[in-house]
Write a protein that binds this DNA or RNA. Sequence first.
DNA 1: GTCACTG
DNA 2: CAGTGACAACGCGGG
DNA 3: CCCGCG
Length: 290
Amino acid sequence: MKLTHPERVVDAASGATKADVARYYDGVADWLLAELKSRPVALLRAPEGVGEGGFFQKHAGKAAWPGLRLLDAALWPGHDALLALPTRTALLGAVQMNTLEFHAWNARVPRLDKPDRMVFDLDPGDGVDWAAIRDGAVRVRDLLGELGLRSWLKTSGGRGLHVVVPLAARWPVDTVRAFSQAVVQRLAGREPERFVAKSGADNRVGRIFVDYLRNGEGATTVAAYSLRARPGLGVSMPLAWEDLAALESPTHWTVTNALQHLAGRPADPWAELGAHKQSLAAPLKALPSL
DNA sequence: GTCACTG
DNA sequence: CAGTGACAACGCGGG
DNA sequence: CCCGCG
Ligand SMILES: [Mn+2]
Ligand SMILES: [Mn+2]
């Protein structure tokens, strides 16, 4: 795979070069490709590196590189063909095109209207410290548990955390979205000093907006193992719930240290996630959402 | 990073 | 030839 | 309605 400008510094904060980014993605390719498998993707490309000027890409437009797959345009009527990255070649081609972040849908082809997971994106407002964010994620996990749903955890690579709930792909995306909104409304109803259910930076000062809008049709969330196009190049890293209390920072894992962490971890904390195709039938009864 | 288009 | 714009898109919330 | 946000 040809990589142009390997020595170009992509992120001044870490000093990481384009070659460092490529080495990172080559190292996580097996895990990341499993995350992206059969899902439409959106790429955040940044030819100028971290900072202003990056752009999202969810359709091919004029772009093309080896392995890049264009999904059948009929899968999402009214839109151009969506993109998928089925192979290492496709993934590293995206890196050559200066992709820093990989985002994915919650549904897989061909059932783009029936997501196989639900995501709760904890977005802390100004003034929320890391301990409160960790506590917030545990509250989300506990409420989901009361509703009969197991959840898995990752860092966002930024300030927050993502709680992921694997589902059987049997409920329409609007049902899943409405249910996730009801979950967040209950969280905010129970602990309004801790959570808000409305987006917008103003109300959530000192509180956490649990972003359920990631569950809408066509919405994407940054994939596990993706870098973030921010100073330091943090990683969205899966971790076990039992390891959350010991995590000292949401940006602990970065392009610089993530491969070392992955080489030394005793097990994949998400190993069981794929086998849990959870039903929403009972949770929908326990928490009616319309 | 690359292409299509402008002047 | 160099320069420049495009490369997502849509619900939400507030003004 | 438009704007800013993610
Ligand atoms: Mn977030
Ligand atoms: Mn968010």
